[in-house]
Design a protein around this nucleic acid. Structure first.
Lengths: 330, 330
DNA sequence: AAATAATGTGTAATCGATTCCATAACGTGT
DNA sequence: ACACGTTATGGAATCGATTACACATTATTT
């Protein structure tokens, strides 16, 4: 591998001068510059970012910790992050936590050892030891999707989105509305969305049969199961189902189809996520677009502001959302 | 940031000894080791992989160049790659080419400047200047999805998969079979699959009306458009449609639904990809599973073999595939 | 013409690790 | 008592860049 020293020797100048033309800084004569550039081209020399980083203490790499790589949300978010970061010469170092807090914590250490300039945490469950880890880390951290105390975060407006969905059902005349959620340790998806559902119901003075409130685990199968239990356990079946994710909603739809219950005539369904799936299932699923890609770019922007010390304080950015009304809704 | 020198000073030993306990190599007394580990714990010292890399010439980072981040195929593949690489202590540095060969080439340079230990290219169109770039790069390169001359590649068996799909239609009694492809500059998806279609038709002595052969661009809309043109232009409509990707197939299905043509009674449809979508559209789409995640891990394994110099020669690995028969097929 | 500013270049220290080599203490077989 | 192998430790070079500083040389100002 050819180094700056080789270039210096071959072009008959010092290392310093080569560095100067590389970064075009300081004074360099046209003649020297031309010669150096020639040699660089001839040799195919590529400066080592590694060595540069060691000296300058900037790696131009951002670590991104994902709860899971292969999900639609993750890939949209990463797409958004990359779009913004690449404009500023940053690269993404990927870290997959695979829904395991221990791994998440381990990744913070690993990313730190690689001297990334910042860490973006696409968050799910926020435990205390995670928060402690983040505090101990000495690079900027920005969270996406969950409100992490003391950390700048880009947040989806889970409460209002869920409130709007429930309210939409109510406005359309539904009185018995079922809910399929996830565990409340997931504060954003589990707790906030559920709270909003109950608040909206209460505000409209609507009763909630406990059997109408079910729980799943982020996949289609569990949505199907939740729907079946709801149908079996409730004295009077709901006329509308709010599932906190599209996959749960689609699972619910599967169950309804199998039971011969017509959507939307006998049962309206809504989800959250605006997944590709939601658009092409039959009937097409009404949902909420969280603009994941935009959330990604906003997170990246916030990160860059932190790195450049434009933003000193921890900031909380709330994303907007958009209801998408399709055929699953009466 | 605390360094190895700080640890050395604080524990009253030399840098060398600290390094020894870090890598547990060479001779270190129990006493010294204990002291050093204490100090490391107290200070929260994390060794700089950067400095280490500079010295050892190994970064333990693999660059992954993707044609597009936010696609189901990409995220599955990356998931598989990460699964294998993380077992060996490697991290992934992401690079998004965004379907642009210039960017692809640029990324090779950038990844090289970061001194990655290897580059995995998830490939689409292979142009000559790309091949030249790969030759100039001095780290192992492994390609996935396209056969790159002189480069170890993990390949999908596009020809046989497409041949099998067409043959399946034929076996079920279809005589008029339509084809929706993509541009042939994409050798694997465009050229190979089309060739297989024609070969299978010819082998069965079936005629192909030129209007039955249409072209799209990887998204659902273009599949819809291709289907409409086919319907409009052909004297006699086909009874089966083979689209080279699931999205194109789903687009075709959309078009058929709008035209009131029943699937599968009046028209059978098949795609390739085993996307999530294929499972949940109505009727469910028959397709071919390419086992993308497995392809990813295989690619990573091959990369590691190259890095460790277990495999010197360029190797070509052909993946298997599986037909998934669902309701879209009569 | 002298003083001052601008331009051009190189020397050497530095970033944070690894690693070769030298040195020393200690046990042990002869 | 001597030689030798084992254990333990540190000094110093090294990886490939940046950068503070010193020193010429040339141009500009007064």
């Amino acid at each position: 591998m050819v180094t700056i020293n080789d270039i210096a020797k071959l072009s008959g100048v010092s290392r310093t001068t080569v560095s100067r033309v590389l970064n075009n800084s300081g004074y360099v004569s046209e003649k020297a510059k031309k010669r150096v550039l020639e040699v660089i081209k001839e040799t195919g020399y590529v400066p080592s970012e590694q060595a540069k980083s060691l000296r300058t203490k900037k790696s131009k790499v951002i670590g991104v910790i994902l709860p899971k790589i292969s999900t639609e949300t993750s890939s949209r978010v990463v797409d958004g992050i990359d779009r913004e970061l690449s404009n500023h010469g940053y690269h993404i170092l990927l870290a997959n936590a695979n829904l395991d807090t221990d791994k998440e914590i381990e990744h913070f250490k690993l990313l730190q050892s690689r001297r990334v300039d910042g860490i973006i945490l696409v968050a799910t469950n926020i435990e205390d030891r995670l928060i402690q880890t983040i505090k101990d880390v000495n690079v900027p951290v920005v969270a996406l999707g969950q409100d992490v105390p003391g950390v700048s975060s880009v947040l989806y407006d889970d409460y209002h989105a869920a409130f709007d969905v429930t309210s939409l059902f109510i406005k359309r005349g539904h009185k018995r509305i079922g809910f399929i959620g996830v565990d409340e340790t997931d504060r954003a998806v589990g707790y906030e969305r559920k709270k909003a559902y109950f608040d909206a119901m209460e505000k409209a003075r609507l009763n909630v049969d406990p059997a109408w409130v079910q729980k799943g685990v982020f996949d289609i199968e569990s949505g199907e199961k939740a729907m079946l239990t709801m149908l079996a356990d409730s004295k009077e079946a709901p006329t509308a189902i709010f599932a906190v994710t599209d996959r749960l909603a689609i699972g619910a739809m599967q169950a309804l189809k199998k039971k011969g219950i017509k959507i939307p005539e006998e049962m309206s369904v809504m989800g959250i996520g605006a997944s590709d799936l939601s658009k092409y299932v039959t009937p097409s699923l009404s949902t909420v677009d969280y603009y994941n890609e935009k959330a990604g770019t906003e997170t990246a922007k916030l990160m860059i502001e932190h790195i450049k010390n434009i933003t000193e304080m921890t900031r909380k950015l709330s994303m907007s959302y958009g209801l998408i009304i399709r055929d699953s809704l009466l």
